[in-house]
Every structure is written in C-alpha cells, then in structure tokens.
Design a protein around this nucleic acid. Sequence first.
DNA 1: AAGTAGATGTTCT
DNA 2: GAACATCTACTTA
Length: 191
Amino acid sequence: MPLHHRLRPADFMADAPVVARALIGATLLVNGVGGIIVETEAYDMSDAASHTHRGPTPRNRAMFGPPGHAYVYRSYGLHWCLNFVCREAGHGAGVLIRALQPTQGIETMRERRGLHDERLLCAGPGRVTQALGVSDAHYGLALTRPPFRVLAAPADSAALILAGPRIGVSKGVDTPWRFGLAGSRYLSRRL
DNA sequence: AAGTAGATGTTCT
DNA sequence: GAACATCTACTTA
C-alpha cells in the first residue's frame, strides 16, 4: 500500500480555494524533480484578480479547459508561473503553485537556479518553474501524466494550513485565497 | 531588515 | 501606453 497515490482528474474537480487548500502537503514532480507543495493561491472567474475574470482569451484558454491540466503564463515578461486547472471545464478556475519544499532532484534544481540556498530554490512561483524546468512547453498538459507527477498528501497528515490575502495583486486584495503550510521555512513569504 | 530599480513580453485600454 | 498572479541586486538603516 503506497503512502502517496497519484492524484486523478476527479481530485481537481472542486472550487479553486478547496483544491488550493487540499494541495498543501501534496508532492509535485516534473521529470522526477520537485518537492512538497507548501504554498498555493486560488483564482476563479468571479474574482477580479484572476486572468479569467473577463472570459476566455488566447492566453488563458487552458484555464477554460478540463481540470487537472496545466495553465502556464509568463509573468512580468521574465518568469513562468504554473497553475493547476480545477473545477470543471469552462469555469476558468485554477490554483497557482507558489512554493515547494524541495525533496527530489535538489542538485538539478540548484544547477537550474544557480548557487542558492535550498530555502530559496522554490520559494515563489517563478522560482518553482525555473527549478522544475517548467515553461510554455508544458502549457495545457495533463498533470496526471508524465512529465508531471502529483502525489496526494499522506492521509494521516494533520498539517495546520493558514490562509491570507494573495501576493502581488491589486484587485481582490482582501480575498484570503493564499494558503500555506504553517511554520514551513520554504514559503515565499510568511503567512 | 526593509525599500527600490531594473530587467522583460504579453495583454488590455 | 499602462499594467502585470516576479525576481535579483543593490541601497539605506
């Protein structure tokens, strides 16, 4: 009986804040490199801070597709950011992966990120994608198949999860849709 | 420890 | 043109 099992499409079929909270403690690997998700943010169509708020566009097309797929966008012209599409196709809901606790392929991540302390390897959405090698090449791919592996948190984990306002948004400032593992040293910022 | 500038591409007004 | 789900390097205390 494996302690971790791979998430299935049905696991992504819930409202964005529910999925965002459930993903804390899950493991994300891309080609075997990654770690434990310690910080996420939820976005959905009802929310002015979301890329999907104004409806489908060429960029956000994947967010209106099936749940359990990747929505990757370029942030500030420099960084890639990775989202997990959730809810149902057509709903424009997703979860931004903001930080991981590195567990696998740490040397690979160090090389991709330059000489940096482990704490900063995946502490921020742009850092996560750089460390895991995620780019627009992953746009729209299923999270339930290689190169992705998303493994559920151990069933017995009773981790304390904190919520607060999201980072870097100018709209929806008071929506407490940022979730983080209490006490983790690998958050992009304290909660 | 906290603040700022500058890098850059895509979308939207 | 402006804004942007950011990061790094560099300043100032």
